[in-house]
């Protein structure tokens, strides 16, 4: 994806700052530089947020 501006979001685990590109797609994964949590970018309404990434489920994969 093309580089563009970044925005800073809060890690839901440690409240640290995580930089997320402005053109990130919902569902993109990021790692918190402070605590190492795997985080998923999503929109709550129009509001960009991060949540803990979904764990691999039984029906995942090819």
């Amino acid at each position: 994806m093309e580089a563009s501006g970044m925005r800073s979001l809060n890690c839901p685990v440690c409240d640290g700052k995580v930089d997320v590109p402005e053109d990130a797609l919902e569902g993109e994964l990021f790692e918190c530089g402070s605590c190492g949590a795997q985080l998923e970018y999503y929109l709550e309404g129009e509001r960009p947020k991060l949540k803990m990434a979904e764990e691999v489920a039984e029906d995942w994969g090819e």
Binding site: M1, L25, G27, E28, L29, E54
Partner: peptide, 14 residues
């Protein structure tokens, strides 16, 4: 249509 953005989805989007 996707649920997780893996390398594959990034490549398709690009």
């Amino acid at each position: 249509a996707y649920d997780v953005v893996r390398d594959e989805e990034r490549q398709i989007v690009e």
